[in-house]
Nucleic acid binder design. Sequence first.
RNA 1: GCCCUGGUAGUAUAGUCCGGUUAGUAUACGGGCCUGUCGAGCCCGUGACCCGGGUUCAAAUCCCGGCCAGGGCGCCA
Length: 435
Amino acid sequence: MVEKPSRTHYASDITPERDGERAELLGWVHEVRDLGGIKFILLRDVSGICQITVRKKELGERAADEIKDLGFEDVIWVRGVVKRQPKARLGVEVVGEEIRVLAKAERPLPYDITGKVPANIDTRLDHRVLDLRKPENKAIFLIASTALKAIREFLRERGFIEVRTPRIIATATEGGAALFEVNYFGRKAYLAQSPQLYKEQLTTVFERVFEIGTFFRAEESHTRRHVSEFTSVDIESAFMDYRDVMEVLENLIAHVHRRVLEERERELNLIGVELEVPKTPFPRYSYDELVEELRGMGEDIEWGQDFGTPHLRRLGEAHKGYYFITDFPTESKPFYIQPRRDKPEVSESFDLMYEWLELASGGTRISDKALLERRIREQGLNPESFKEHLKVFGYGMPMHAGWGLGFDRLMMVLTNRWNIREVILYPRDVFRLTP
RNA sequence: GCCCUGGUAGUAUAGUCCGGUUAGUAUACGGGCCUGUCGAGCCCGUGACCCGGGUUCAAAUCCCGGCCAGGGCGCCA
């Protein structure tokens, strides 16, 4: 049987106030500085990093021998005494009495994780697990974990039920976006690009539903904000319109900021981010207003055409922070978006922007079966392939609205990262399928 | 899918325009010295021009093709 090592303290428990306590720690060798007669080991565990100091003379022969060859990322067990130490940067250290190497790491490691030499994103992703051990990279995902928790607690408090919809589907949900094909027992199937139709159906059961899930797009995008596998936060609610769900969304975003600030101050400091809770309500601008604004800037834009990236970048310069774009032309939106009754050429729709980055998109959905069928046809799609979905609209479909939020993009904003791949543990894009 | 830029030790880079000694530096790695380091320091050492073709007396350097990477556009979250 493998001997189970014991632990009495985590690295973050090693504080000057605990001077004199006996401690046993487990972790990875983050750094070693060997001065000959004295050796400093930085031990890293899930909680953080602490300094272990060992004096060769005071250490037994066996223990001294054990750590003679200590290298980066070796797993060690340490027993010693906590000592207040003004000479150490953290003001405290553990004077090691016994050290055992539990697992050796190979060397040289593919790249330096202490940050002395930078690495390209590609190299980092090739050795992702090592990369994630860097405290500032780990911090991103601790923040993500808090953000996910905050989203769940916020939505549950407001009566939303967490659901899970299929990833393997028979037909394209919205047309347009390229889907990955799957061989499903000899039949053609696809990986879901969104839970859209399922979450709409489920509002007739649970009224308010949400899902946090992974979805897929087979677009060959070469940008720093697109990947082929991404995490989406989706909500859908019966008896709400787009104004109602925009309110849910902006309050959710503010709540996530608040929680991350409360629980991840240390991680935010580590990555050098000064987060603020955004003021609600977020500014709302209609598509029409922004078309005028862009024209005022000298941009050539035809009414009805969706904003291109250059347009969004200009808008992002003019509008800092979060804002909504509302009432998009019906033509530019998916078939299930409700056209405005008073002005059918625009729709009850919105995008949530952070400067130039699109974070979420949503709207009131069509609940009238005949209208939905007509819209499917108008978009050049075949109602026959949506018959499973359409039949639900004959069973009593209330008005409803919802949105989908790109969680990874929200993480880019929260952590101020340049590339979406940095906020995904194991990103998948056109070129990357491993690790 | 289209466009731009790039590929030099494990990692990150200089050198490439304007072809010509031993391809420089940092870090990592190996050896040595060192009892207060915290980007530890000092000495010694190992280690690289993406692949193929062409031009040339001579190619890391110029040309062509391929592969790989970063990014922009399109599309979208």
